[in-house]
Amino acid sequence: MTTAITILVDGLSYASWLFIVALGLTLVFGVLKILNIAHGSFYALGAYAAASFVGWFATLKLAPEWSLVAMLFAAVAVAALVAPLTERGLLRFFYGRDEVLLVLVTYALFLMLEDITKLVWGANPYYVSEPYAMFGNIEIGEQIYVGYDFMLMGLAAVVGIAVWWGLNRTRQGKIVLAVIHSEEVASSMGVNVSRVYMLAFAVGIFLACIGGAFTAPLISVQPGISVGVIIVSFAVVIIGGLGSIEGAAIGALIVGLARAAAVHLAPQVELFAIYVVMALVLVFRPEGLFQRIQARKI
């Protein structure tokens, strides 16, 4: 029983930040039809910026609670700076082109951002320890868990509900859904599709950055963290179905629990347990568990 609870808590903790990152990836694909290889680099930028902002706030002798505000500010700052430069300065010139070309463009952007992070922050690791101890420990049965992990679960729930509500209960969100369904029809109805692309891409980048910022206290922020994140994020959206919010949530939960079960029960298969699960899902549901319905072309 203790092992089962530990697997559940660890799996939910891992799935929480992964869901936030994968949600941004699936949102960008759903609206812009881009498999954004550089999404992991935006995650890394959020983590590096959070480390810098938390350190800066610490020099101001502010209360530890301000470190959470610093991480949020870091995500907002990176998204506000990087999203317009990337979407307006690069991606917009390739809309309507072959999907493989867009993948290659985002891969080139990924390589450039990897070097840019090294130029800005160097090759030494950064550690963000202040927020991790803020929430204390929580005792469940015979085990003691870090409270920060439960905060991440709550953050994932808030982010998921906010994105769902924004898409389904607001005017701007319904415009985005119209563009997802058919950008040609939406454009003919007077919708500024270019502006919708910019908005969706900015939100997607913000989700990647906030995922990186709030996982910075859990990891060593160093070069290379973007590679593992983008691979696992693709596994999540492939399992759940590209372009589906519900799929991102279920996919992250499946990946998180599979990884946690492998770590605790069979550590030797931890490296490829996620991909075994992905392969099994694709055998029976090649389109993913929650693939959105495609509009019929006439």
Rank of each mutant, 00 (worst) to 15 (best):
A49G: 10
I298L: 03
C209G: 11
Y145I: 10
L280E: 01
A38R: 01
D10F: 13
R195G: 06
E99G: 11
P64E: 12
F73V: 11
F110D: 09
V269H: 13
A178G: 08
R171S: 10
V31R: 02
Y148S: 14
I205Q: 06
F206V: 05
P125I: 13
S194W: 12
L8M: 11
L111V: 15
F93T: 00
E183I: 03
P217D: 08
G240N: 07
P64W: 10
E114W: 08
S52G: 04
E246H: 15
G46E: 06
L25C: 06
P64M: 12
L280N: 02
V221F: 06
A156V: 09
A262W: 07
F234M: 14
V31P: 01
L72R: 08
A235I: 09
Y43H: 05
L152A: 09
A200V: 00
A252H: 04
V229E: 10
Y95C: 00
M112C: 15
A50W: 05
V28E: 04
W66F: 13
D10G: 15
K33V: 03
V191A: 13
D149L: 10
R169D: 09
G141T: 01
G160W: 00
E246L: 15
A4N: 14
N36A: 01
G211F: 03
I116C: 12
G55W: 11
L104E: 10
L60N: 09
L25A: 04
H181R: 06
I231R: 12
L91T: 04
T2A: 14
F290E: 02
T26M: 07
M189S: 12
A249T: 13
F234L: 14
I138P: 14
I298E: 02
F42R: 04
W17S: 12
G30Y: 09
V281H: 00
V176E: 00
K174A: 04
K297R: 01
L280H: 01
L18D: 05
L152T: 09
I219L: 14
A50G: 08
L23T: 10
R292V: 05
L155K: 05
K118G: 12
V281S: 00
A51T: 11
L282D: 04
V179H: 00
G166V: 01
